[in-house]
Computed example of a mutant assay.
Amino acid sequence: MTQAPILTLTLNPALDMATEVADIIPGHKLRCSEPQLDPGGGGLNVSRAIKALGGDSLALVAIGGLTGDRLAGLIRGEGVTFLSILGPGETRQSLTVNEASTGKQFRFMLPGPTWGEAERARVFTLLGATARPGGISVISGSQPPGVPVDFPAQLAASMPESRVVLDTSGSALTEAVRHPIPGLEVLRMDGEEGEALAGRPLPTLADTAEFAQSLVHAGVARMVIIARGAEGNVLADAQHRVFAKAARVKVKSTVGAGDSFVAAFVLALSRGQSNDEALALGSAAASAAVMSDATQLCRPEDVMRLLPECAVTKV
């Protein structure tokens, strides 16, 4: 199946470790199970899920130090096509610990090394050389320490002919809403972030859809997607407001659900499918991801099995 080029950008990747203990008790030595290691970080997870779903992408990944070398080995092992950007210092690690007695999950995210002007300049050069006209470029995950709050806008400006998808959080998300990025194709956020930006609760689908469409009309992006957790996902463009229901599944871990959504959504768009079809596939991928352990992403067989449940309706 033909598809437009997809580029993903991960500036603050992590070597993800996942383990389990019987009980988390302060002051005790906690005996952990054998850790599972995965390459992590928003854009990188998107590329991994695209690969699992039978698509292709090029992942640009900032890598540094011995942890970075180990991360690169894991990426190669998964068969994901990637280019490494020389990042500062040592690539960060993250730790997910499941408590067997309660089923609770604890996630420890280290900050990563601080970026300077030289590292930023390298990224702009590489993006200018690799982003393809008409292709889709995904800026996803946390921004590294040391970059300005409008860094996603600077990144997008270095890819003027690419359709840019932004999935970020915190001050970078707030900045992208207050000072819209010219030509941004898609902005995605979760429900809590949407409520924080709206300054009010968004209890109903209609509330969420109305707020998403208000952002489109304000020029924030051509499409705005707001995830409503286990309920599903809302998408608004200038003319339409639609909702794709999430499939009903048993939740093991919510890690990677958002990245799986973005991967499936972007892959569908790159293959020329409609926004509705892309939203349904994204919702099925997010539902499939929560069925898997720890840092694992969606499995293609689960996605296709759940897809019929993820019906798209107008809001």
Rank of each mutant, 00 (worst) to 15 (best):
G64K: 04
P182H: 15
S171Y: 12
I75S: 05
L58C: 10
G116S: 12
T8F: 03
A218D: 15
G73M: 13
L184G: 00
L86G: 14
A131Q: 02
G77Y: 11
E231I: 11
P39M: 04
L205N: 06
R305E: 07
V149T: 15
R163H: 15
I63W: 01
V266T: 09
A263L: 09
F124D: 05
S142L: 13
L215R: 01
V177P: 03
S171L: 15
R31P: 06
L110I: 09
R107E: 09
S287T: 09
P203W: 15
A172V: 13
L267C: 04
S260W: 03
A118R: 14
E231L: 14
R271F: 04
V262H: 00
A156H: 00
T174M: 10
Q143N: 14
L306T: 02
P111F: 11
P26D: 07
E309C: 09
M17F: 10
M109D: 06
R241D: 08
G199Y: 13
A176G: 07
G116R: 12
I136G: 02
M291C: 11
I25K: 14
G41C: 10
T10N: 03
N98V: 13
L279I: 07
G42V: 05
L7A: 01
C298Q: 02
G27V: 10
R163L: 14
L187T: 00
P300Y: 03
M189K: 02
P300H: 06
P300D: 10
R305T: 10
T114H: 12
E210C: 10
D259V: 00
G103P: 08
T19H: 03
E210M: 13
S287V: 09
A72I: 06
N98G: 08
L205I: 15
A246Y: 02
I139Q: 00
K51P: 05
D23V: 13
G141A: 11
R122C: 10
V216D: 00
P5D: 06
S287I: 07
